[in-house]
């Protein structure tokens, strides 16, 4: 088991299996089909992301450097949270980008029943260490535990 400390963007705790993207997550391209066509598991639809394409994102500990692409990104994440199709948590190796930050804050401020802890600045080592299906535990104080 290894611990990483990041900055809390949206507070909360979660335990889930890791899903790792080494490239930026294109939020719109990844979630658009899932939100529109009743896919409760949120299968990633981004053809340009070989790490995630075709994999289920809902309920996973999504580990990534940052998000990229359309400025609908924040509201797409917000809607995924409102529909219960969001990742269990989002863990960024880099400082968070403006679109993911918007999604994280909007769900935290405006959705009563949403809980998606978001931690950023976990460092490059975090993203090189974590692998798909490892168990991730996020704690209230921003500590992220990764175990096989």
């Amino acid at each position: 088991m290894k611990q990483f400390k990041g900055r809390i963007v949206a507070k909360g705790s979660a335990t889930a299996k890791a899903l790792v993207s080494h490239n930026g997550l294109n939020t719109l391209a990844s979630f658009q089909k899932a939100l529109q066509f009743g896919d409760k598991t949120a299968t990633c639809g981004d053809q340009n992301n070989p790490d995630l394409y075709g994999k289920q994102m809902a309920g996973k500990a999504l580990c990534l450097p940052r998000t990229i692409g359309s400025t609908t990104g924040g509201l797409v994440l917000y809607c995924a949270c409102a529909m219960g199709r969001q990742p269990a948590c989002m863990l960024f190796s880099e400082p968070i980008d403006s679109l993911a930050a918007a999604g994280a804050i909007l769900q935290d401020v405006w959705l009563k029943d949403s809980s998606m802890p978001v931690i950023d600045s976990l460092g490059d080592e975090f993203l090189s260490y974590v692998k798909d299906d490892m168990t991730i535990t996020v704690k209230d104080d921003g500590i992220v535990e990764v175990s096989d």
């Binding site: 400025t71 609908t72 990104g73 924040g74 509201l75 917000y78 980008d97 403006s98 679109l99 918007a102 999604g103 909007l106």
Partner: peptide, 9 residues
């Protein structure tokens, strides 16, 4: 202008 998300705009 920053790369604002929808709703933040």
């Amino acid at each position: 202008c920053n790369r604002n998300s929808g709703i933040i705009d």
